[in-house]
Design a protein around this nucleic acid. Structure first.
Lengths: 229, 229
DNA sequence: GCTATAAGTGTTAATTATACACTTCCAAAG
DNA sequence: CTTTGGAAGTGTATAATTAACACTTATAGC
């Protein structure tokens, strides 16, 4: 193809994906053992190359679906990494995304097939290339986003207890929260449905289950409501 | 070159740059009349293609320096645009940056040479491709960043009045601020140096000039201080 | 029926944000 | 010399939000 741009350099464009999951009371990310060179055998984010006929969101979804079997997952692009030597094999620019998944949902067989493993975010191993930097930035972005949009629910089962929600925010924000203050803040938002059902796993008394009321949230947002934790 | 990646598609990677300036009491951006096809003659952001031997920050700096003659300008990458047909000429992915410059500083001749023009942000014309979307997102990112980091000063001359600073934040945040509340907030931050010098342009009484005390800000930040407006 | 354990629940104090109006200064006009 | 116009500069009171804090309740398991 000959056109106005034809003398310009082309590059490989990858997407890399930080997959967050929330297990009991820990925020975790899913990593794979890389099975090809360079850096074969090292821990890595999942990634793949952008194809001609797709945009970056599509590519990130495709890559994520390969590993987890999941579709329609929350994904947010957050930064593009471009150091000249970041990949020793060949000049590659990588667009980083993070994904939020319900850790109970993904395809266990696929995970094993890729030798993937969950790591708590305070014990991330050394990763290839600039992937550790990507993880750090993904956590920062997640902290900001989770404070301003109701995306935390993506990491929880459909029905969850207030305590689970609190633990989730504590692990995302890396801080301790006061139980009473947290609950009254959440209640003031008025975007949850409290069920009659109780979760009996965590205590003898049991703990009421809640659901995120997306319709109500959308309606309130439309009327000017701003989510803030 | 033959390697593990050799069957993957390559793409053109561009950088596009939203250049913000602050003129009197208006936030503006600098646009150029595009002088090549496609979309020749239409208003556009400045941009250019990534070269083999540079990273994206370098490319953005290069592109910005071409148009303004400026160097060491505040630049932040904020999003990568990848719709398949965003550029009708050829598949091009674009990484968007915004820049903050002191509007008095740039090279007037270069601006004229490129038929560039400043537009206030509430009167942006129709731009090529997805550039209007880029501008909208740049403004949002600037609003967030200016609330959490002392980057506003990049848009002002070295010496500025409190009123200029207030007008700047008003135009960035697109809101009115109370003069007394604003000043006491800024004073509470304790990161400005008040000079004995006055600016006599704007009133008969004159208005004290201030400077951003970067050293003090860095020291305070190191000690846990968090900038917040 | 006793016990151990997490769930659930309100009030007060402290901090932060908002609302609001008059005086001062000085160049320019007369 | 006096007057005037216009922006600069300044403080307090109220409202809203956030932070600190401890006891009772429910129930499964022994």
């Amino acid at each position: 193809m000959l056109n106005n741009y034809s003398k310009e350099d082309k590059v490989l464009l990858a997407v890399d994906c930080i997959i967050f999951g929330f297990d009991k009371d820990k925020l975790k990310i899913l990593l794979i053992k890389r099975d090809f060179e360079p850096e074969k055998g090292k821990w890595s984010l999942i990634g793949g190359f952008l194809k001609k006929e797709e945009n970056l969101d599509d590519a990130a979804n495709r890559v994520l679906n390969h590993l987890t079997g999941l579709d329609e997952v929350y994904l947010e692009q957050f930064f593009t990494y471009s150091e000249v030597d970041r990949d020793p094999e060949e000049r590659t620019i990588s667009v980083a995304y993070y994904a939020l998944i319900n850790i109970e949902d993904h395809d266990q067989e696929l995970i094993e097939h890729y030798s993937a493993k969950w790591f708590t975010i305070d014990k991330i191993p050394n990763l290839i290339f600039d992937h550790n930097e990507m993880v750090d930035q993904a956590i920062k972005r997640l902290q900001y986003r989770a404070s301003t949009k109701p995306i935390g629910f993506e990491l929880l089962p459909e029905k969850f207890t207030m305590r689970q929600l609190q633990k989730l925010y504590e692990s995302i924000l890396d801080t301790d929260l006061d139980k009473r203050n947290f609950i009254s803040k959440i209640n003031a938002l008025d975007i949850l449905i409290k069920l009659d059902e109780k979760d009996m796993e965590s205590s003898r008394k049991g703990s009421y289950l809640h659901m995120f009321d997306k319709e109500k949230y959308d309606k309130k947002t439309h009327e000017g409501f701003i989510f803030k934790i």
